[in-house]
């Protein structure tokens, strides 16, 4: 057993971080993302192999696995990369143009569809009769995630409805992990720089302990997400999403708190992490569903 990242995996992570620093620097978050801008980004991500990562090399893919995909999506989460990344990645190989980033593919999750207007295709379970004609835009809390609400729960809601895909849950959890790691780093950096009472606010235990708890949540989420990628077990994936959602949402909220007044401004990037974390936490499985999935397996073997 060796749970550590391999050399190749570390290189992939470093390479992805460099790529995204170029494609999606912090300033990129300041401009609205319209259809043209999203398509440009998609082509570049497609060229870099982000969508074809898990396709076999014979099919023009990169031939890597879930562990590698999780590392890439963690990096995407760090920089708040916009767009239906998970849906397009999962559509590679089945929807034409998804692997190369020529097609923007989104998916239905519960009653919501993100990036509906910018998308070329809406993926769903085969046989799912999606009626998107009545989809109504809502004023999305996340400025970089446009949302439409469907007129009624897709295929009646319930188990087996559109969006209940563990693979999507895993990649979403990886994005949450990246966001949580980023807000933790930001909070720690700010706490070390900002001075009050003649010293850095990070020297006060009240602030220190907030930061320490942020890191603990990140590290727990990290091992949960990585292990879920390795085992592929749907229950473990649900648990990983639960812990990663919590790390991202609470991490961003604590980061707002550490930033003080600055945290409440539009200018600081923190609120964008919180809002994106909220939208991801609403995707399947939400906390209640994940906890029920985890509970289902408990106590059935006698004891």
């Amino acid at each position: 057993m060796d749970f550590r990242l391999t050399e190749d995996q570390r290189a992939l992570r470093a390479g992805t971080r460099e790529l995204l620093a170029r494609l999606w620097p912090p300033e990129a978050l300041r401009e609205p993302v319209d259809r043209a801008r999203l398509r440009g980004l998609w082509r570049a991500l497609g060229d870099a192999g982000v969508f074809a990562l898990r396709l076999p090399e014979a099919a023009g893919g990169v031939g890597l696995g879930a562990a590698e995909a999780v590392l890439v999506f963690e990096e995407a989460g760090r920089v708040l990369l916009p767009g239906p990344l998970v849906a397009t990645h999962l559509a590679a190989g089945t929807v034409e143009g998804a692997a190369t980033g020529e097609s923007v593919v989104t998916r239905v999750d519960g009653e919501l569809v993100a990036w509906l207007e910018a998308a070329d295709r809406v993926a769903g379970d085969p046989g799912l009769d999606l009626d998107l004609t009545g989809a109504v835009p809502l004023r999305s809390v996340d400025p970089l995630t446009p949302l439409h609400r469907l007129p009624r729960p897709a295929a009646g809601g319930g188990a087996g409805a559109g969006g209940h895909d563990p693979a999507a849950a895993l990649l979403t959890a990886a994005e949450q992990l990246g966001s949580a790691a980023r807000t933790t780093e930001s909070a720690v950096r700010y706490a070390g720089e900002r001075e009050q009472f003649g010293r850095p606010v990070g020297s006060f235990q009240a602030v220190k302990h907030l930061c320490a708890e942020m890191l603990v949540r990140v590290e727990i989420a990290r091992v949960a997400v990585y292990a879920a990628a390795v085992t592929g077990d749907p229950v473990e994936i649900a648990g990983a999403k639960l812990l990663a959602d919590e790390a991202a949402v609470l991490g961003a909220r604590d980061c707002v708190q550490v930033y003080g007044g600055m945290g409440f401004t539009w200018e600081a990037e923190v609120h964008l992490h919180l809002k994106r974390a909220w939208t991801r936490a609403r995707t399947w499985p939400v906390a209640a569903a994940a906890e029920e999935i985890e509970a289902e397996t408990l106590g059935v073997g006698g004891g």
Binding site: F3, I220, A224, A227, G239, L242, E291
Partner: peptide, 16 residues
């Protein structure tokens, strides 16, 4: 039920 489900995720993650 949800409390126990959450603990299941928690203790598995601790093992990881």
């Amino acid at each position: 039920r949800r409390t126990l489900g959450r603990l299941n995720a928690e203790f598995r993650a601790l093992w990881r």
